[in-house]
Design a protein around this nucleic acid. Structure first.
Length: 509
RNA sequence: GGCCCAUUCGUCUAUCGGUUAGGACGCCAGGUUUUCAUCCUGGAAAGAGGAGUUCGACUCUCCUAUGGGCUACCA
């Protein structure tokens, strides 16, 4: 193949929210395009008027914006090869359908859906092809006048691709190598339907890819069986020498059990299968999204990139730029990957860990606010720094950080039983008095002075710290003790300690 | 049923004829720590089965099994 500008496309059907498998396909297209300095196109394949779902197109666009997958041309930004919505390209397809009809590479068929269903019941393994097309109502069996009369009378018809049987069709796949299929097993696919004057996927896809100068078709494995048909279509149009290269990606499978990943698996196992939350316009059902679940887009991208591809080294944490640098279709796997959402959680954890505290702050502040706790940016940054290593998702910080801002009302029973000893009230009283006199209430100074105080009095470190933690947090967990007291300040620290002494049970020695 | 694709630890994967079959997630055990986490160290854990080809196969070929996809006037 001669050197040419790389152009790839992602071409979803607006039938609902974008599935996570589709996101991965788009990501691979994007990585490939960027890697080769090429263009990435978003085309909407809405040739099935029955399955159109309002809002789906906007959802798709918003999802890619969130994920950081950018397009160079597309339905939302235009470009010189538009329109990018197939329903707006009717005239174009009609023209190419006629080309096929005139050259005898396609024919008109009048069989109704009912007749076809009947045929399928009548003949085992019925397929509309060279062995059966002479039994059907089409322009090959009917006299020319009859065909013209039927059309003139407004009968619905379809245009079918005439497939010559008995030849091996070779699909050259960049991931799988040569795939050979005999044309005899292919059926005369419907390319166009008069009822809505729209082509089917196959015709529209080939025409658009050609007209939009697509060089590489990177799509899911579910398209592999129809790839020979597409090869034949390129041939029929005389475009074989400029046909794009194919790469069929392995599928994303259920985490457990068999089959491909579906929406139900997400509901059942508790992880999202869509990038953004989606509310079904008909049923009102809400499906959770990665964004709303607290995933960082960078983590989702990184995780998805490694499901079916790897750089050949042990490197796992990669930014989009790094992925672009390393991506290679030759390193894509052939076999389906079970969707390992546990690892997705880990990726998110790693990204939170490495993320700048200030960029997490706005989301954190918003989440706290909706819980009725107002937090300043400065406070948020401090608390996030202390706590982010403990969570996989940002929303998990909310219940965990509440005590920084709100004094405990109740105390965890188990911790009280274990950590609040007979001498705890006395010790806490002494510690409170000691802290009250402290000038420098920074974490570092507290640590130094309290440490010395404990040593001087020969107290048991754990006894002091655990009881103290219980009185400030209400539980036996949390970050470094002195960071907590320093954050909430001297007054609040003393207040919480004295309340604990008052409220918590006195125990016998 | 027919056609096509695939098959290395539980999972994601490395290996492109000669390796103690490597890494990561998860799991288990230690360690650090005032707590809970984090973190660190260590551990268990794999070539579907059978024939070939070869001095030598995880790696190449074939068969079987298993899994997956497609088989619409859906994409």
């Amino acid at each position: 193949m001669t050197e040419q500008q790389v152009r790839v496309r992602f071409a979803p059907s607006p039938t609902g929210p974008l599935h996570i498998g589709g996101v991965r396909t788009a990501l691979y297209n994007y990585l490939f395009a960027r890697k080769h300095g090429g263009q990435m196109i978003l085309r909407i394949e809405d040739t099935d008027s029955h399955r159109f779902v309002p809002g789906a197109e906007n959802y798709i666009i918003e999802a890619f914006q969130w994920l950081g997958i950018e397009f160079d041309e597309g339905v939302h930004i235009g470009g010189e090869y538009g329109p990018y919505r197939q329903s707006e390209r009717r005239e174009i397809y009609k023209k190419y359908v006629d080309v096929l009809l005139q050259s005898g590479k396609a024919y008109i068929a009048f069989d109704t859906p009912e007749e076809l269903t009947a045929k399928r019941e009548e003949i085992k393994n019925f397929q509309y092809d060279a062995t059966t097309r002479n039994l059907m109502n089409n322009s090959l069996t009917l006299p020319k006048e009859e065909v013209e009369r039927l059309i003139a009378n407004g009968n619905n018809y379809v245009v079918r691709f005439l497939i010559e049987p008995g030849r091996d069709v070779i699909v050259n796949d960049l991931i799988r190598g040569e795939v050979v299929i005999n044309s005899s097993v292919l059926d005369d696919k419907v390319l166009y339907k008069s009822v809505d004057e729209l082509p089917t996927y196959h015709l529209a896809n080939i025409v658009d890819d050609h007209l939009m100068k697509i060089t590489h078709v990177i799509r899911g494995e579910e398209w592999l069986p129809s790839a020979p048909l597409h090869v034949l279509l390129y041939e029929a149009f005389g475009w074989a020498d400029v046909a794009p290269s194919f790469a069929h990606l392995p599928l994303l499978l259920k985490p457990e059990g068999n089959g491909k990943l579906s929406k139900r698996d997400g509901d059942r196992l508790g992880f999202p299968v869509f990038p953004l939350e989606w509310t079904d316009p008909k049923s009102g059902d809400v499906s959770s999204g990665y964004r709303e679940s607290g995933y960082l887009p960078e983590a989702v991208v990184n995780f998805l990139a490694l499901l079916g591809w790897n750089p050949g080294t042990d490197e796992e944490l990669m930014s989009m730029d790094r992925l672009i640098e390393l991506f290679d279709l030759n390193r894509c796997n052939k076999s389906g990957a079970k969707f390992d959402y546990e690892k997705g959680r880990w990726f998110n954890h790693e990204y939170i860990l490495h993320m700048d505290n200030a960029s997490i702050a706005p989301q954190f502040i918003g989440l706290m606010s909706s819980e009725g706790v107002e937090v300043t940016t400065e406070q948020a940054i401090t608390v996030i720094d202390l706590m982010k290593g403990r969570v996989n998702f940002i929303p998990e910080l909310v219940p965990m950080c509440r005590f920084f801002f709100v004094a405990p009302v109740e105390y965890d029973g188990k911790t009280v039983k274990k950590r609040w000893k007979a001498d705890s009230p006395t010790l806490m009283g002494e510690l409170a008095d000691f802290l009250e006199k402290m000038e420098d209430f920074s974490s570092e100074n507290q640590e130094k002075e309290v440490g010395a105080w404990i040593a001087k009095n020969e107290y048991h470190l754990g006894n002091i710290m655990n009881a103290w933690r219980l009185s400030l947090v209400g539980e036996g967990k949390g970050p470094h003790m002195f960071d907590i007291s320093a954050f909430i300040g001297k007054d609040e620290t003393l207040r919480r300690m004295r309340r604990a002494i008052e409220v918590l049970p006195r125990k016998e020695a």
